[in-house]
Design a protein around this nucleic acid. Structure first.
Lengths: 217, 217
DNA sequence: CGAGAACTGGAATCGTGTTCTAGTCTGTCG
DNA sequence: CGACAGACTAGAACACGATTCCAGTTCTCG
């Protein structure tokens, strides 16, 4: 972490090319790097334990090459998460096409998310670390990752007014994420995580006095 | 981070004395170290930027001495957080002694917590990092810190049955923490954090169909 | 084909937490 | 009083993984 942990000023030299604008073969090379990194994490290695050298080797590129595409390990792994979100979102879209209530759809997706992390605790760890990265590029990508999740959830709420939908997504996602964290910390069981998700969904969807506060504090 | 980030096996050599059992003058020395570390953080320095060397110097002890009391930077800062929680909890106890509803008390305390972090974003950062520390001693202390918060919140719920109180504390705290994180990330404003706290408290206290799910998924 | 961009292998650098060394100080016990 | 233990000190030394550099080498494209 020589640089990344030592530096608080967000990297101002971000000299990496926008992947969108890359000629196909370079783009492919970049993708190979991301894939290699993803594989390593998927294989169960702890984020901390994974060395950039290994990623480079696995991707079959030199260290210097990797650093042409990513400013830091964190930037690389933010890209990994984003990539992962892609396949994940895809999986979400199947199987809830049938006629269900918004509530049921949200519930299903939340449980799916929990399950996804259940078998990949390292991803949770990575997510947590990246969430508060100093690297600007990492932050940017991470934000996209978060948005992607949010969009996916929001898309489940067909019959709800947008404003309320946003609040619902926010609350449930936060509780889920927080609870997953305690699970990752060994402070609770995965069954409890699921139970909490259910409780929260109940709570948020049950008929009740609606939001009243507009002003803070 | 030579050791801490490289090591996943939780430190098994935790050769530090239990502060409770320390003779007074040694205890005082230990406290001085914690205070120095706290000061540094309080002065606005980013956790990452703070070097153990500086803490030692500020406390007026040699590096080796610091390491006689703490196994790692994370252990040290877990102690710092715990110490901070002490003063914080104390501040909480005044001013809500009067007759209020449980709801009002919870609300007040949550807002206070938000304000506490508002002027100390570095603490939030530290909390996040320590939450997933590898150091056993750090974990232990951190757990105490978390418990302390939870107890403080639970104590605000006088007229609520314990089980429900626990659920309320858990949910509201999680939402607050998560929202604070997004604030720290620049994804929202502090006013919005307060607003969310209010909404969540409303939600959790409003009369409604009570929890129904017992089994998970 | 030739220029320049991109890549390779690997050495070198860096930052920082952590450990080690050699001695110094303090207080206690016989 | 003298010796021993325990805790301390200044600071050097070490570990180690991210990041940067370098000197060629190999593509790619006009």
């Amino acid at each position: 972490m020589a640089r990344s942990s030592a530096t608080a000023e967000s990297r101002n030299d971000g000299e990496v090319p926008d992947p969108e604008l890359l000629p196909a073969h370079l783009r492919r090379r970049r993708d190979r790097i991301v894939e290699a990194a993803l594989d390593l994490l998927e294989d169960g290695a702890e984020y901390d334990r994974i060395q950039i050298r290994d990623v480079a080797q696995r991707a079959g590129v030199a260290l210097g090459t990797l650093y042409r595409y990513f400013t830091s390990k964190e930037h690389l792994y933010a890209a990994v998460l984003l990539e992962w979100a892609k396949t994940f979102a895809f999986a979400s879209e199947r199987d809830d096409a049938r006629a269900e209530s918004d509530e049921a759809r949200v519930r299903r997706r939340l449980h799916r998310a929990v399950r996804a992390f259940e078998r990949r605790p390292q991803f949770l760890r990575a997510e947590i670390l990246l969430e508060s990265s100093n690297d600007d590029n990492a932050r940017r990508l991470f934000a996209r990752f978060a948005d992607r999740h949010q969009d996916a959830m929001t898309a489940a709420l067909v019959d709800t007014e947008p404003e309320e939908a946003a609040a619902i997504v926010e609350t449930t996602s936060m509780v889920m994420a927080a609870k997953l964290r305690s699970w990752a910390l060994g402070r609770t069981t995965i069954a409890d995580v699921h139970a909490t998700v259910d409780r929260t969904v109940d709570l948020v969807f049950s008929p009740r006095a609606r939001f009243r506060h507009d002003a803070a504090s």
